[in-house]
């Protein structure tokens, strides 16, 4: 991209005017996100709760599909059981515990956060922490700042002034 046009444009708008525009955009974004969040459909309806619960249990016979997706008989049984228990006023945890007792712990699609399966939740966080740490280390490493021109660099410039040559590949077109 041509930096000349960029600077020409930015000089038209002063820095403080730019800052103002950005603040306005940020305020607009935050307010729309808030509208979207708080003007939502209101508290969860019973139907939505049943759907959410059915989404979170695995059908014991169908390779990791949830009971809400599966067409198997046992999935229909569990769906009916969830509907009954919700109607009886049981809490999510009570329903969960009953299903674990009735089937086994692998009826949960979301691995529990205690015991060995806690690792599934912890390890990704560790990965991200190390990844971000590595990124920070990489971008803060000094040494690239004050490099002097080598003979190769001078040669490159000299070639350019001579009229130059095409790159063999011609594909280094990732300009910006």
């Amino acid at each position: 991209m041509s930096d000349a046009t960029t600077t020409a444009k930015s000089s038209k708008r002063s820095l403080s005017a730019q800052l103002g525009l950005w603040i306005a955009l940020a305020v607009a974004a935050v307010s729309m996100l808030s509208i979207a969040t708080f003007d939502d459909r209101g508290p969860e309806t019973t139907e939505e709760r049943i759907q959410r619960l059915s989404d979170s249990f695995a059908c014991p016979e169908c390779d990791g599909q949830s009971v809400s997706e599966s067409n198997a008989a046992v999935a229909a049984t569990i769906r009916a059981l969830i509907r009954d228990r919700v109607a009886e006023g049981m809490s999510d945890t009570e329903i969960r515990d009953e299903l674990i007792r009735g089937y086994s712990s692998d009826v949960l699609l979301n691995p529990p956060s205690e015991g060995i399966s806690a690792l599934v939740w912890i390890l990704p966080v560790v990965f991200v922490v190390f990844g971000v740490g590595g990124w920070i280390a990489a971008v803060r490493r000094t040494g690239g700042g004050t490099r002097t021109a080598t003979d190769d660099d001078r040669q490159l410039v000299a070639d350019a002034l001579d009229g130059g040559h095409d790159t063999p590949d011609g594909g280094r077109d990732d300009a910006s």
Partner: peptide
Amino acid sequence: FPLLAEAYDDTRLTIGRPY
């Protein structure tokens, strides 16, 4: 992970969509 957990101490667990 479910394979590893099962090999380690016979824990049967499912990791599905919500995770």
